[in-house]
């Protein structure tokens, strides 16, 4: 577990959900924790949706005051920089999808690289139509690296079909995740699984996920 953890990936691969869950995880270990919402491309379903629960646990939420409002502005909260000077705090970054979402990362590149103690995880969901296999996922990965300027340090397999995910979907995707690991030369650091399924998946480094509640 590094002091700075970034989650990037293809649009809709599950970055926000993992970032929120990961922040809770760090906090549960007793560390000071902040989560930074740097998603400037997604108008709905943001870190901000979990703000109350996060803050209740003592996690500092850094997001635009008008996230989830009708102000559709791609801007960055200036408070984001504070995590680089607060050395006693762990920080989780939720980055927008694809290369277009990762451009925002570019301006933090010098701070992140100076930090050294960071991880940049590539979130892969092989159930997404434009990243169905390792090669396609690698293509997106390279585009993101080019835009965000921060090299990836590991892969997260978050293959899922939302509420309809079955254990078999995850097991089937494991081979593709390992192949992506091989061709990208990056370790497969975890497989994220909806919490009610997590106990039944026999694989290394399972990270259980709580999904956000919907009422439709």
């Amino acid at each position: 577990m590094r002091r700075i953890t970034l989650f990037c990936g293809h649009y809709g691969s599950g970055k926000t959900n993992i970032a929120v869950n990961y922040a809770f995880y760090i906090r549960s270990k007793g560390f000071k924790t902040a989560i930074v919402d740097l998603d400037i491309v997604n108008p709905y379903f943001r870190t901000k949706d979990s703000e109350k629960e996060l803050e209740k646990c003592g996690i500092r939420v850094i997001s635009l005051p008008f996230a989830n409002s009708n102000v559709d502005l791609p801007s960055i909260p200036s408070e984001s920089y504070s995590v680089f000077s607060n050395k006693d705090e762990y920080a989780v970054f939720d980055i927008g999808g694809d290369d277009s979402g990762a451009y925002v990362l570019g301006q933090f590149e010098p701070y992140i690289k100076a930090e050294k103690d960071f991880d940049n995880f590539y979130v892969a969901n092989f159930s997404r139509p434009l990243t169905r296999n390792a090669e396609e996922a690698l293509g997106v990965m390279r585009e993101i690296e080019l835009a965000g300027k921060v090299p990836f340090t590991g892969i997260i397999n978050n293959t899922n079909l939302g509420e309809e995910t079955e254990i078999n979907d995850i097991l089937l995707s494991n081979g593709e995740a390992l192949r992506l690991s091989k061709i990208s030369n990056l370790p497969l650091v975890m497989t994220t699984v909806r919490e009610d399924l997590a106990k039944d998946v026999k694989a290394e480094n399972i990270f259980p996920l709580k999904l956000q509640k919907k009422y439709w």
Binding site: Y11, P129, L161
Partner: peptide
């Protein structure tokens, strides 16, 4: 892999 994929509504319209 199964025939099912995970999509945004907007993407599903485009692909369909």
């Amino acid at each position: 892999m199964s025939e099912k994929v995970l999509m945004k509504g907007n993407e599903a319209i485009a692909e369909a």
